[in-house]
Amino acid sequence: MQVTEEFVLEGKLGSADLSPWLLRHAGKLGLAIALRVQTDERLEMTLSGAPDLLDAMEMGCLLGPYDIWVDSVARIRSGCRNGG
């Protein structure tokens, strides 16, 4: 099963390292990622892939690069597709 979810990160996110880190970590997990909104306190992105790997992405985001701090990760499922 492949699902698509909106991830909303909140915290102290004002680092140039964050976007490339997210793209790299999603790539390691084989997830499709689209960054949508980023401010110093909030980042929104769309991720697609297997549910367990989206869970792993959430775990990764909670740690992130050392110079950011994630207070919370909210997830909203926006699509679901069986197979493939």
Binding site: W21, H25, K28, L29, D52, D55, A56, E58, M59, G60, L62, L63, G64, P65, Y66, W69
Partner: peptide
């Protein structure tokens, strides 16, 4: 403290919380 080459999963939730606490 940056997961880097490691891929923490949901089963590693306690480890993730520990690393966050260390960082904080």
């Amino acid at each position: 403290l940056d997961p880097g080459m490691e891929i923490p999963t949901r089963a590693d939730l306690t480890s993730v919380a520990y690393r966050r606490w260390l960082k904080r």
